[in-house]
């Protein structure tokens, strides 16, 4: 079990799908204006990613190579539709606020990426752990970004007032920018910077290097 647990813990920070692989950015921008939508989206992705990894891993030996992507997408799309239907039945108000972004989980690169890159070649157990780890890594970024955006943008968290607003006689003036899409880019960018400063091995090697006069690559 200890041997397997790195599948779960690695994607949380070290190889986080959002901050290292820059995947799933579209929905990370769209659903992070409020913490409630970010949590719902994270839960939806956890379900879809784990279930698709389990199913695809279970039938991986019988998936013909030529049609594997179509089969993976079909399975993922089915799970996404089920999730969307369940949300519309049991969490109607929040599903209205998430609008199309639950449906767009189908095109979230993390899901297909883990199916194609991991679940196709590994047994069910590790596949589920890997899926859960990646989904939690994505959820972690979403929750951090949404917390910052909702708190600084509206002075609330989960709709509960946290900071006293100036219009009610307090000292906090909401930063409207935080409710707009660019702020998510700024926050994710700062997070990537912070992580790569702490872990320099994540910084990409430059593609081209200038030769120094001695004909050796500069360090």
């Amino acid at each position: 079990m200890i041997r397997l647990s790195h599948h779960l813990t690695d994607p949380l920070i070290r190889s986080n799908p959002v901050t290292l692989q820059i995947l799933g950015i579209c929905s990370a921008l769209a659903v992070t204006t409020a913490l409630a939508t970010a949590l719902t989206m994270a839960a939806a992705l956890i379900f879809v990613l784990c279930a698709s990894a389990a199913i695809i891993s279970a039938i991986r030996r019988h998936i013909p190579h030529a049609i594997r992507l179509i089969l993976q997408i079909t399975i993922i799309a089915t799970l996404v539709i089920v999730t969307d239907e369940v949300l519309r039945a049991y969490a109607f108000e929040i599903s209205q606020r998430l609008s199309i972004f639950v449906g767009l989980i189908v095109t979230n690169c993390i899901v297909l990426g883990r199916a194609e890159g991991f679940a196709m070649h590994h047994p069910v157990g590790p596949s589920i752990l890997d899926a859960l780890g990646n989904a939690l890594g994505y959820g972690l970024v979403l929750v951090v970004v949404a917390t910052i955006r909702e708190l600084l943008g509206t002075g609330r968290l989960l709709g509960i007032p946290m900071l006293p607003l100036t219009e009610q006689g307090g000292w906090f003036e909401p930063l409207r920018l935080m409710q707009l899409a660019p702020s998510a880019f700024f926050i994710i960018g700062l997070m990537i910077w912070a992580i790569r400063t702490a872990r320099p091995e994540q910084v990409e090697r430059p593609e081209h290097r200038l030769l120094s006069r001695q004909g050796e690559a500069r360090p």
């Binding site: 998936i63 079909t74 539709i81 089920v82």
Partner: peptide, 25 residues
Amino acid sequence: NEDPVKALGMAGLVALGAALTVSTT
């Protein structure tokens, strides 16, 4: 897995499972 019968069969089975799941939900 390279066999056409297997490919068509798997495609059909996955599609059937997906259709049943979605319509039931």
